[in-house]
Design a protein around this nucleic acid. Sequence first.
RNA 1: CGGGGUAUAGCUCAGUCUGGUAGAGCGUUGCGUUUGGGACGCAAAAGUCGGGGGUUCGAAUCCCUCUGCCCCGACCA
Length: 565
Amino acid sequence: MRLSQFHLATVKEVPADAEIASHQLMLRAGMIRRLASGLYTWSPLGLRVLRKVEAIVREEMNRAGAIEMLMPSIQPKELWEETGRWQKFGGQLLKIRDRKQQEFCYGPTHEEVVTDFARNELKSYKQLPVNFYQIQTKFRDEIRPRFGVMRAREFLMKDAYSFHLTQESLAETYQAMYQAYTRIFTRLGLTFRAVQADTGAIGGNASHEFQVLADSGEDAIVFSDGSDYAANIEKAEALAPTGERPAPGAALQRVDTPTQKTIAEVSALLQVTPRQCVKTLLVRGRDGLVALCLRGDHEINEVKAGKLAELPDESVLASEEEILAVCGTRPGFIGPVGLPQSVPVIVDRDAALLADFVCGGNADGTHFTGANWLRDARITRIADLRSVVEGDLSPDGLGVLHLARGIEVGHVFQLGSKYAEALDASVIDDQGKAQVMLMGCYGIGVSRIVAAAIEQRHDAAGILWPQAMAPWQIAVCVINPKNLPTVSAVAEALYQSLSERGIEAVLDDRGLRPGGMFADMELIGIPHRVVVSERGLASGTLEYRARDQAESRALSEAELFALLD
RNA sequence: CGGGGUAUAGCUCAGUCUGGUAGAGCGUUGCGUUUGGGACGCAAAAGUCGGGGGUUCGAAUCCCUCUGCCCCGACCA
């Protein structure tokens, strides 16, 4: 590509609202332009990168035996009512009407459509297993779009759906996808981890997320230093502590804590550590309020709470009025001691081991000290309620857990029969009987990968693309060609021979001053750069510099080709 | 959805408190000088000050209202 024939649109300034590096650099490099909240135009430069990612994803999906197809982005309401998700999906589902007032949605995912396709196309077990995929634009009306294409409303996704007669077959394809994903992210040059993920309300046997490690990531992940255990923090089990609860040693005593509501305030006032306190959360259960008790230094894990039989999938804190009605106090002074019998008290494993602890007094402005389970407070049930913390033992018993931040770029999931059942997608088995198919689904956030890569690889000057994602491999910069026509000719010849070798080169023939040219090529992250100038011609060598190195070095043309091959 | 902020030239932003001729930098266009790390000079084009309503002799500025956008929060007592 000759840059004089391209539309490169770098800018020096960046809107103040671009917060993270990838968003800022994508705007500065002119890869994307915002059209509306969560909607971005991909410029020619940005599209080159997006296509690189897409191509690798496509190659590896094909290699793993998946078959590409393309489904509509707009989907009819009726299909979504069959699975019940027209209501359940909530506000993220963008609903639209056509001129006849028929209702549709812009597809946030394609389980319904692909299962409908499958139930019409797949009739015999002999057609299974099969794995369909597409690379399609999706729309999710995010509560709060942010970070550019990282959490956009419209985004490009690869989604695959596999169909099976047996669980073994599903597990096999799941494994194949897991491996394909590992190849994809490795080829893309990303530092990532596959982590166990929560399967959510859908259930199912297995789910893994592929997380690109980056401090700006929105997900918390944990991994063991003594094994290959890794999980999303939503999923990670906090091992049951060993040891017995000590016998009560202190008397229950009510103390004044007039304005101390938080664990930090209470523990500071009473001169105890947060881990000697119990915090009590009142949430709306399926049948009245439920108390959840945790050690003061621990945090509730909402996914774990959602799995309790007493609670709905997504628990909601009780309102101040509800709390006042049930336990006669306001938030900040709730405790397990003396709660009405109607309120189940579910206690975290670690909190259940405390003795002589501090907790809310169930009366405004007071807490208890010297509280003890059983003697002073009921335990309806002990459960794993908390999120793991740095230093916890790994659930597999090997090593200690560490926390990191990640950007979710892929997710593989064994769906089971949920959608096939709802849409009655079945095939005839070898006994001549109809059997509902089992499904897996496998997503990759193609556009998000571009942002994730930048989060992981950038410096003060701009982006450092991994080789596989770079819009071009090498930039040929022509310096001051007006003075010496041979400079242009040599640059042109070099550009030609690079192209003939199948090396993607960009010729910067815009006639900029050197500083502007270098700054642009560094900003847009081209891995290799060669400068052609009067000075270089005199020495008979090429001036080469790698994007990630501070110094240039002289190379012959042969050496340059060897480097790039 | 709750709270906060913001909207002025293509971009980034001053100006608003205290009403009185619309500003800067970057970018763009032209001419000239420059040419190894975002050059310099001269000249120029460019804004319905988000929309609507009101107050006033007079509104970017004050008041009301609508809209867009951004941030924080949406459970952790």
